[in-house]
Amino acid sequence: MSVDASIALLAWYAVDKRRLPWRAEPGEVPDPYRIWLSEIMLQQTTVAAVRPYFEKFVTRWPSVEALAAADYGDVMAAWAGLGYYARARNLLACARKVAEAHGGRFPDTEAALRALPGIGRYTAAAIAAIAFGRRAVVVDANVERVVSRLFAVDEPLPAARERLYALADRITPERNAGDFAQAMMDLGSAVCTPRAPECGRCPLASCCTARAAGTQSLYPRKAPKAPKPRRDGVAYWLEHDGHVRLVRRPAKGLLGGMLALPTDAAPAEARWREAGSVDHVFTHFALTMKLLCAEADSRPHEEDAIWWPIASIGDAGLPTLFARLAARGTEWREAA
């Protein structure tokens, strides 16, 4: 890609860039906290899904120091529904590390950023480029698609990732790397889309190898996906006196650190009745979770039990799977 093409891309971005709540407007100084928070939230998640969570977080915790001082349970509850919950655990760990070890200021180099919890190669590059103006190679799924078409990379993903990174490195300018990275991401999101790319609107159309061959829709090539294994499980809705028994899941593992219904074993001797099931798809497997419901004669006093008011179960911050199961539980008690 020529210097002229880079200039054309940046000119397109200046006019057509997305207005996002974490982006600095012209004349504003980028806020590393907002950029970091958005990049963590955007990992494997769409802009549309992230926007309300981002706005909720920055309203409640407007700085990295405020987030570092937050209660663990409050952060996990605020994250509920966004998925990939290890991100939330790392988010709090990273905020505390920045507050304690860096005086509340994010480091401005990729190497130092990668030493923080939850920050890998892509996120470190994005923060370094966008927040601090460093020349960094920022490659997300949108950029992979744009680069694969620009150079007609025939090797399929994920094996092609290092080649796509090297090609992105080749075309990343020494200056304005942050705007360039955001322009490439916006181009992939709005113009160079997975299906029916709008090449007539693309500022890079003249230098796109795939477009010249009329094969742009074939890229990026992807290796066939193996079918996801299916698992079955059981969750338990045990209620007493208008409250339901919840537990906090172990910090490590599936939905780690989140409030949930018990799943390992029945939490009490009771007359358990089935109340349907919920299907949910995780990254590596699909799950069918059956719900068993019962009413307890008394409230056992286990240390790990959290008895939550059923009338406000929506405020518990349950992850999506358990929020759907809780809805089944409330339906069961209304019909009982």
Rank of each mutant, 00 (worst) to 15 (best):
D169F: 06
S189L: 03
C208N: 07
L164C: 11
L150C: 07
P203I: 00
C199S: 07
R145K: 12
I171R: 02
N176Y: 10
G188I: 00
R221V: 11
G214M: 07
L204W: 04
C199K: 05
A166I: 06
Q182N: 09
G200P: 15
Y219N: 02
S217T: 15
L187I: 02
S189I: 00
V143M: 08
D186H: 07
G178M: 14
A213Y: 10
V143E: 06
N142K: 03
L167V: 09
V153L: 14
A152Q: 08
E144G: 08
E144N: 08
R170D: 05
R221P: 14
V143G: 05
A160S: 15
R161N: 11
C208F: 04
N176M: 12
A168H: 09
E198P: 08
V147D: 00
G214N: 06
N176W: 09
R163E: 15
Q216F: 04
T215A: 14
V191E: 13
C207Y: 07
D169P: 09
C207R: 12
Q216N: 06
D169H: 14
R195V: 13
A160Q: 05
V143Q: 05
D169G: 14
S189H: 08
V143C: 07
A196K: 15
D154Y: 10
E174S: 07
R161T: 13
A141S: 15
A196E: 15
E198H: 14
I171N: 04
